[in-house]
Design a binder for these strands. Structure first.
Lengths: 251, 251
DNA sequence: AAGTGGTCTAGACCACTAC
DNA sequence: TAGTGGTCTAGACCACTTA
């Protein structure tokens, strides 16, 4: 954990980008963990050998990416998942009237398996690599409306068991963070129409083959390394998916 | 079009927020139009009576919201729609293999009508207010896969006719900008499963009542004033909707 | 009162674009 | 060469939090 000043100005690009990379590297290395306070701006500026303004610009970008959170008078913190309404950054299902409710999650299945071609491609592992697969049912306002099929690479989640998953106190991404040091900071989602399988028919109380909203999500940690593939199917009779709220950044 | 310095520091909040508001007001008033270059940072800083750094912070936010675009060595410009790949900020349909193609648009219907309750609520007008309603068919790779039902308030689009709409040289939002001074800078979208009407059945070549991805969009101009309601239905056999690419801002 | 982030200044120098 | 935005500095003062 070197605390040396970073490289001279000209090499990697600009000073503040280098500072940003250095902070990201420290986060990846676990120097500061989820929810913790990082050193003050003054201290970090000294550590990296830049002015406060430059240091702030690096942190500005990390805050814009929801990787850090600033609190005036308190300090700058490593972003945690699902705190308060922050939860709805990744949970994008609302009732048609706009009401946002926290889902009640039930683990429906858990198994060790081999990565499908789709899962392997999404997660950046070999086809047939060891993965954990599990299925959640999510209830809103007392009714199950969403089924999630989740795959994660075994290599990133050593010691994961059905019991641990079932007994987690918080949300799944918080569990990833606390239990395995994996911080989900970004997701990509593709949406299409899918059909209800037997499982979904039974759990959602709809006909076999009934149309459902199908959401394929890949979740990423720092430096865009994939950590989870999730295929969700939503009954949109009473609920909707919140799509693009354009105005913020896209690439 | 006053060029006075803005208010003293304490009133509206912070200096740079006031500068930002003042720039937004000038944009709304049409002082600088789509694609035009706004005055240099130095000149604007003098005009508003703030330092360069403060002026830059205001412009930083407007660039982050895709309202302005900076070009080093050239100047700062009012954002235009659908230039190059910028088009795909609002067009969120891709082939399943990820291929992005520009749609070929066909106007299928055009009429004057009264706002439905949904349209009135979305657009912030009275139920029964005069609106234009029109329908587009969008073809990708030679096949029509998306039908758009669009409502816009007559009051904001004086003199709009079917002929003008049909003969527009560019995309719809560019037409709004050039023809009516309306800049779409933000959209909200809700996604669910819908069923094919007769029109969609005929144009998309699918069965009546077949499931389609239904996207309800409200488009906003500066200061979040609603200017368009659009209900789109997509055949997801070969195409998908790009949902949240979380990592950038959400509220 | 001490420490934090939030805002703001008044410049400097650099990289890029146009002429 | 002149003008633009991009980066960076070395502070100042303010607002907020905790004690």
């Amino acid at each position: 954990m070197s605390t040396l000043a970073i490289n001279p100005p000209a090499l990697g690009g600009t000073r503040y980008k280098e500072v940003k990379s250095a902070i990201l590297a420290a986060l990846s290395a676990g120097e500061w963990k989820g929810g913790e306070c990082i050193p003050s701006e003054k201290r970090l500026a000294e550590r990296f050998g830049v002015s406060i303004g430059t240091l702030r610009k690096a942190i500005d970008e990390l805050c814009a990416e929801n990787i850090l959170i600033r609190h005036q008078g308190l300090g700058t913190f490593v972003s945690m998942h699902q705190r308060d309404r922050h939860f709805f950054r990744f949970f994008r299902v609302v009732r048609r009237d706009g009401d946002k409710a926290y889902p009640v999650v039930t683990l429906l299945d858990f198994r060790k398996a081999r990565a499908s071609r789709e899962a392997a491609a999404a997660l950046g592992v070999e086809t047939g690599a060891r993965v954990f697969q599990f299925v959640n049912g999510l209830a809103l306002h007392g009714k199950t409306v969403l089924i999630e099929h989740i795959s994660v690479p075994e290599a990133h989640f050593p010691g994961l068991t059905e019991a641990k998953l079932r007994n987690r106190p918080n949300t799944l991404y918080n569990f990833y963070q606390d239990g395995f040091g994996i911080n989900v900071v970004e997701t990509d989602e593709r949406v299409s129409v899918g059909l209800a399988s037997e499982l979904e028919s039974a759990k959602l109380g709809i006909a076999l083959g009934a149309p459902l909203l199908e959401i394929r999500r890949v979740a990423y940690s720092y430096h865009r390394s994939a950590v989870e593939l999730r295929v969700s199917r939503l009954n949109t009779e009473e609920y909707e998916y919140i799509g693009a709220t354009s105005g913020a950044d896209e690439k």
